[in-house]
Design a protein around this nucleic acid. Structure first.
Length: 625
DNA sequence: ATAGGGTTAG
């Protein structure tokens, strides 16, 4: 009787067919709706308390992509004598839900004999729940039951234990289980421990493990690549990805998303494009995650138009897709567009979160939208009850300060509930420089030097404020102070991608193999832009050297070397894309504008805080950055 | 009569 009943009651009509991915050979998973329909048929047939049927129903619920814990519980509660099968699947439903601790409660009533006794499946599910809840205490107790009941040799269970300890960063315990199970080990055991090491920041150990693995699958590679990227070793991550491809292995979605993120962080457009073409050529389904990662990559690599096109073509957008788009528009100075996106986002029923407002406030500050900035700052706290963080204050101080509302900015800082980050004062110091406020600048500059005496940026800013108002003896004094303090100077660099490689330059760099050509090109550039009326602005140079030498120093800023190299290796009329870690200096900004005009070249520079698109002698930031 | 493990940013 069973097989027939089962198929007629649980099997679903073809027309409603299960969500079935052509790329996987997984068994079909009924949706929540389909499962509820099956439940209805069971009830209609008078079998509402059939343990076998309801057990299957629960297993469907545990697997359904979107299921409701309340519903699963209501099904489970109708059973007067739940089977192990039904109980295990109920534990699995808890494990998958937002209240994984429910699994542990049900498990202990099984242990007490109130319901069916646990079997090996019980342990995999309850341990999964402990991992998810980071319930190390409960997990350890379950571990002792596993040993006591002789389940320690079950590879599924010992892997679940390795995963549990890895998830809780108890790497010593994790390794012990791993070592004890030397005869019951497979690629999953290795992957679980690898993931733990990576999570714990032990990237070197993980690397060694990875090298020793007897077998590696897509998840092993993705864990390793992710490990590098999460630990900030972006180049190594991309290198690992390359090695994987050279071995003829196919990436999975997790790898692609991670690698896109690395390309985005480094600003490597060509690499990002390569990943995009891999996605297309392997016929990957364009999921929301992949789409969002691509939108982000193009925005962070300077192609905001491409980013917008992709965003508009997405079938489904989640809150992250919107956040990425809004922040991207903001970083390109497209303030109005970013705000329009925000409004649509709200109209579509999304609720903004704190990063959304970082994008919105950045949009205002980059585009100088003071009124809007004040409005959204208020909206964030009053309408959405989001506590502003340091970064939100940073945007506001920047916006108000640069627009000249210095007192309002000072007020905002002083009324903050938490002690202000020195960065906020530094931002305000920048505003004092723009508006030539020597006295306030002096006060803030001294305060900053006191707070953070090893940071060279504060001295530089203060000195340039003095320089701007021609207070030369103060310039010299501050500069001497800086040398005496032995400040840490953050080395500036610029990079450009060309001929399938990344070329990185520092100021005065002569290490590049085409160095002499680069310097010749610099001279040509200098001559041509001088003819067009350029004179160097050397106020930002503080070295104790003669005027002529100062000109040479700025002439050899890393950014210019990268641009000169770009002119050498790209075709006439091609866009030159530069990524740098610090902000562009005033003079380089001017020079880039001139080059864009004289050589009819579009130049896109991503600096430490935003994008500059130079075209026909103008910059997208309107010289306001 | 039946089920089980590991990887994903912004």
């Amino acid at each position: 009787m069973f097989p027939n009943k089962l198929s007629s009651l649980l099997f679903l009509p073809k027309s409603l067919s299960y969500s079935h991915s052509p790329l996987s050979s997984l068994p079909p998973r009924p949706s929540l709706l389909q499962t509820k329909q099956a439940h209805a048929r069971i009830i209609v047939h008078g079998l509402a308390s059939d343990v076998v049927l309801l057990g299957h129903l629960l297993s469907f619920l545990a697997l359904a992509p979107s299921s409701s814990l309340e519903y699963s519980l209501s099904v489970y509660r109708t059973l007067s004598y739940p089977s192990v099968f039904a109980s295990n699947n109920m534990i699995r439903c808890f494990a998958k839900s937002d209240s994984p601790r429910g699994s542990v409660v049900l498990y202990s009533s099984m242990r007490q004999g109130n319901v069916a006794l646990p079997n090996s499946h019980t342990f995999t599910f309850v341990l999964q729940a402990c991992s998810k809840a980071l319930a190390i205490h409960e997990g350890t107790q379950v571990h002792s039951h596993v040993v006591k009941l002789g389940f320690g040799v079950d590879v599924f269970i010992s892997n679940a234990l390795i995963h549990l300890y890895s998830a809780c960063c108890r790497m010593e315990c994790s390794k012990r289980v791993f070592q004890e199970n030397i005869h019951h080990r497979d690629v999953v055991s290795w992957n679980s421990i690898l993931a733990g090491l990576v999570r714990d920041g032990q990237i070197g150990v993980a690397e060694t493990m990875f090298g020793k693995m007897p077998e590696r699958d897509a998840i092993s590679w993705s864990t390793m690549i992710m490990g590098y990227v999460q630990n900030g070793q972006l180049e190594e991550g991309l290198e690992c990805f390359k090695e994987m491809r050279e071995r003829g292995l196919k990436p999975n979605e997790a790898i692609l998303v991670t690698v896109l993120s690395a390309s985005a962080q480094m600003g490597l457009l060509e690499h990002g494009r390569l990943v995009h073409s891999i996605i297309n050529s392997l016929n990957f389904r364009m999921t929301t995650s992949l789409g969002t990662a691509l939108v982000d990559m193009y925005a962070k690599c300077g192609c905001i138009e491409q980013s917008k096109l992709l965003f508009n073509s997405m079938h489904q957008r989640d809150i992250s897709s919107w956040n990425v788009m809004i922040c991207g528009l903001a970083s390109h100075g497209l303030g109005k567009e970013a705000l329009a996106h925000f409004e649509t986002f709200v109209k579509e029923g999304f609720r903004p979160v704190n990063v959304t407002f970082i994008g919105v406030l950045n949009a205002c500050s980059r585009a100088g939208l003071v009124r809007e900035g004040r409005h959204y700052f208020k909206l964030m706290t009053e309408n959405y009850d989001i506590e502003p963080e340091m970064e939100h204050y940073g945007c506001m101080v920047d916006l108000l300060g640069r627009a000249g509302f210095i007192n309002e900015a000072v007020d905002l800082i002083e009324k903050m509930p938490a002690p202000p980050d020195p960065v906020l004062w530094a931002t305000l110091l920048g505003a004092c420089k723009i508006h030539g406020l020597v006295e306030l600048g002096e006060m803030i500059g001294n305060k900053l030097i006191h707070l953070d005496p090893n940071h060279d940026g504060h001295y530089v800013q203060l000195a340039s404020i003095y320089a701007k108002s021609r207070k030369w003896e103060d310039v010299v004094r501050v500069r001497r102070l800086m040398f005496k303090q032995n400040t840490n100077k953050i080395a500036g660099w610029s990079l450009i991608e060309a001929e399938g490689r990344v070329h990185q330059f520092v100021a005065g760099d002569r290490k590049h193999e085409r160095s002499s050509e680069i310097y010749k090109m610099l001279e040509t550039i200098g001559r041509r832009i001088s003819e067009a009326g350029y004179t160097p602005n050397i106020s930002s140079v503080l070295h104790d050297i003669g005027e002529e030498e100062k000109e040479n120093v700025i002439k050899e800023h890393s950014e210019r070397l990268a641009i000169a190299y770009g002119m050498l290796v790209t075709g006439v009329g091609d866009c030159i894309r530069i990524v740098k870690n610090l902000r562009v200096c005033e003079d380089c900004h001017e020079v880039s504008k001139m080059i864009s005009q004289v050589f009819e070249r579009e130049i896109v520079v991503r600096d430490g805080s935003r994008f500059h698109h130079f075209k026909e002698g103008k910059c997208s930031c309107h010289d306001f950055w």
